[in-house]
Amino acid sequence: HNLTITQGKLFFHYNPKLCLSEIHKMEEVSGTKGRQERNDIALKTNGDQASCENELLKFSYIRTSFDKILLRWEPYWPPDFRDLLGFMLFYKEAPYQNVTEFDGQDACGSNSWTVVDIDPPLRSNDPKSQNHPGWLMRGLKPWTQYAIFVKTLVTFSDERRTYGAKSDIIYVQTDATNPSVPLDPISVSNSSSQIILKWKPPSDPNGNITHYLVFWERQAEDSELFELDYCLKGLKLPSRTWSPPFESEDSQKHNQSEYEDSAGECCSCPKTDSQILKELEESSFRKTFEDYLHNVVFVPRKTSSGTGAEDPRPSRKRRSLGDVGNVTVAVPTVAAFPNTSSTSVPTSPEEHRPFEKVVNKESLVISGLRHFTGYRIELQACNQDTPEERCSVAAYVSARTMPEAKADDIVGPVTHEIFENNVVHLMWQEPKEPNGLIVLYEVSYRRYGDEELHLCVSRKHFALERGCRLRGLSPGNYSVRIRATSLAGNGSWTEPTYFYVTDYLDVPSNIA
């Protein structure tokens, strides 16, 4: 807008934040220059609390790290170098490059900038070799853009010569660093050979998330399962459950009422301010606690030095998902009996873990797994792929695949051998790939016309006998059925096997 004052003059007093240069501009645009008398524009009460600059400061050096910015700028000295009290560095987070010096300023003089007072450097006698002032900004957020400017702080001049310097606002972004852990990993099994893994992005990506790394490792069953005799009275049979499938998407929606109208769909109840505040506090606490764990609990591995020492970490090797089922080394339970199943799973520490690289999504279907087997899954978020990966501390989750139908069934015939004193040795093959492992066998036998009897055969007993022995049988026709019990439950009964026990007292003698 054009402003013209045809008559009258300007009068400025007691404006401590208004620089004289701005008042002189007002004289020019209003056409009143030359009308004012000496005392109409006070030299001592206008701009006496402001830094009124008329020179431009330029930054000469900028260096960044993930949490620091090192700045240096060209030296500046007023005509009387004693008038320079120091520099004021202003900075704040700036997602967009549209910041002005006066953003967030209120009537009390406060604003949204963080201000650092910096002492002037030592003055050199040689004007050509003056030290460049600077400042190291610490405690910054990774991968965050900051708006920065600097200006001088000078003393009051009796001659009211307006001098000083100020830089333009520059924008500097800190470097990326390792992201925080992925949030809320959930693993479920939808079949006997697959596990579905879902997660949420890290709360602090500290860069642009480029991919996720998912490692999985087959877990050995508890050692007590191999040692305890679950045929003993009072000892509860062990059981394991597989990871249940995901709930429906509708039930997972946030901010939804727990109660549904019987007449149909209901609208979600909005969260109160107290609920939102509580969630923010919980989120802040979780982030602080995660940072504490990362800094205190997890110790970084030592990389190899120039002395030739090897990095103890196993090298990563990509495998196809079809090879995942046989990740671990199978060892027989008892070496003397080769027909026992290889369900003991000690994992070799030198073995390469299978892994998958996930790009542009937060889910993965891990296939080719062994049925009813526990897996430990390790999830890392990465925001750099080359020249070397920059990934987060791992988040861990466990899951067990679903049982395989008929995996616990005894394959092959049940054979028998009759000894003296009416002892019958029953023999059968253990299931080759049971659900988890076989903890015991149930032997059901009966003599024709009598009630059915049951015998429990422990895992250890089966390994020693290759089956079991029935003792003290009365003469007669017998039928026997056997079924295995694994961590997933009972298998199917075998087809009945028949044998006849004679009275050993009636056996004919070869003595003449």
Rank of each mutant, 00 (worst) to 15 (best):
P354G: 14
D291C: 06
E495V: 06
V439N: 04
T415A: 13
E265W: 10
L213V: 08
K233Y: 12
S392E: 15
Y230I: 15
T343V: 12
S257W: 10
V443R: 05
A394N: 08
S305Y: 09
F285P: 03
H371V: 14
L228H: 05
P300E: 04
E389Q: 10
P332I: 13
E260N: 15
V414Y: 01
K287G: 02
V397P: 06
T288W: 06
R286H: 01
R313A: 15
Q219V: 12
L455E: 02
I276D: 02
V507M: 13
T401V: 11
V296R: 13
D273R: 02
V397T: 03
S344N: 07
N422R: 13
P245L: 10
E260Y: 12
T343N: 12
E290W: 02
W242V: 08
F462C: 02
D450S: 11
S492F: 11
F289V: 04
N435A: 05
W216L: 13
V443W: 01
L440G: 02
K287W: 08
G207T: 04
V365T: 03
Y292K: 02
P431Q: 03
E362M: 12
C269L: 05
Y375N: 00
E221H: 15
F372T: 03
Q252P: 09
M402N: 02
T272R: 08
V414L: 07
L277R: 11
D250F: 06
E351V: 13
L473S: 01
S341K: 13
S392V: 03
G476F: 02
P205M: 08
Q275L: 06
K406M: 10
R316C: 07
Y504I: 11
K317Y: 08
R286G: 02
I438R: 02
D229Q: 05
R466V: 05
C468I: 07
R447P: 13
A394S: 07
Y478M: 01
S344P: 09
E281S: 04
E217G: 06
H352F: 14
A394K: 08
E452R: 06
T494R: 01
D450V: 14
Y375D: 01
D311R: 06
F298Q: 03
T210V: 15
Y445D: 01
G412P: 11
V397F: 15
P244S: 15
L293S: 02
R353E: 09
S474V: 12
C456K: 04
S479F: 05
V214R: 01
R447V: 07
H211C: 00
A335W: 06
Y230N: 05
F285N: 03
E247S: 12
G368C: 11
S509T: 10
G491S: 06
E221W: 15
E350T: 10
E224V: 10
L321E: 13
L225V: 05
S363E: 12
F372C: 15
T288E: 10
S320M: 11
F462A: 07
E281K: 05
E227G: 10
I418E: 12
S458K: 04
H454I: 06
C468M: 13
P338H: 10
L364P: 01
V324W: 13
D291N: 15
K302V: 07
T210L: 08
G264S: 07
H461T: 11
S474P: 06
R400A: 11
L487A: 02
S274H: 10
S283D: 05
G322F: 03
P387I: 04
S342E: 09
Y259M: 09
K361E: 08
H425C: 06
R218D: 06
P238Q: 04
T343C: 10
C269I: 04
T401S: 06
S315A: 13
G374A: 03
G467A: 04
G472P: 07
G234F: 09
R286L: 02
E290C: 02
K460F: 06
A220M: 09
H254K: 15
I276T: 04
V443A: 05
S248H: 03
E260F: 04
V329F: 14
I209L: 14
S509A: 10
S492R: 08
P270G: 00
H416Y: 12
R301S: 02
V423G: 14
R240A: 03
A335Y: 05
I418S: 11
F285E: 06
G489Y: 12
S344R: 13
P238C: 15
G449C: 06
P332E: 12
V331M: 12
I418D: 02
S304V: 08
P496I: 06
P434D: 01
E356A: 14
E224P: 14
Y448T: 14
F499M: 03
T497R: 11
S257R: 03
L505Y: 15
Q256L: 11
C231L: 06
R471N: 08
Q384H: 07
K317P: 09
P354S: 12
R370T: 00
F289Q: 02
R459H: 15
L228C: 06
E420D: 08
P238N: 07
V397K: 09
P238A: 02
P300D: 12
V324N: 11
F462S: 05
V214W: 01
A336L: 11
N477T: 09
L505M: 03
S474C: 12
K317N: 10
F462K: 08
R466D: 11
I366T: 03
Y478C: 00
E417T: 13
E265I: 08
T328L: 10
D323E: 07
D503H: 04
P332M: 12
T303H: 04
K236V: 02
V329T: 06
P354L: 12
E224T: 10
Y292N: 06
R318T: 10
N295P: 02
Y396R: 08
G325R: 04
I410Q: 05
N208Q: 15
K361R: 05
V414I: 12
S341Q: 10
R313G: 05
H425F: 14
A399N: 03
R313Y: 12
H425A: 10
R376E: 01
S509H: 14
R301W: 03
R286M: 00
S239K: 15
G449E: 15
S304P: 13
R483W: 01
D229E: 03
H416K: 10
G476I: 01
N208C: 14
E430H: 12
L228E: 15
T502Y: 14
V345F: 10
K271F: 05
K236Q: 05
D385I: 13
E362K: 09
S367H: 07
V501D: 06
Y259R: 14
P354W: 12
S203R: 15
L232E: 10
S492H: 12
H254I: 06
G306N: 11
P300A: 09
N206P: 02
Y292M: 05
G325W: 10
F419S: 05
N490W: 11
E279I: 05
M427F: 13
S341H: 12
P312D: 04
I366S: 01
G489I: 01
Q256P: 08
L455S: 11
S341V: 12
G368F: 07
W493Y: 13
T340M: 13
F289E: 02
I482H: 01
F462Q: 12
H254W: 08
G412V: 07
D204W: 15
P387T: 15
D204A: 15
I418G: 07
N206W: 05
D229H: 03
P413G: 13
E281H: 14
A395Q: 14
T210K: 15
W428F: 04
M427P: 05
A399K: 15
D291K: 02
A336H: 03
Y500C: 10
R218T: 06
H211Q: 07
D323Q: 09
E221Q: 13
P244K: 15
M402V: 05
V397S: 06
F298D: 14
E290T: 03
L505P: 09
A399T: 07
S392Y: 02
T347N: 06
E224L: 13
E279K: 02
P349Y: 11
D261H: 14
V359T: 12
A381S: 08
S348P: 12
E389F: 12
K233A: 15
D409R: 15
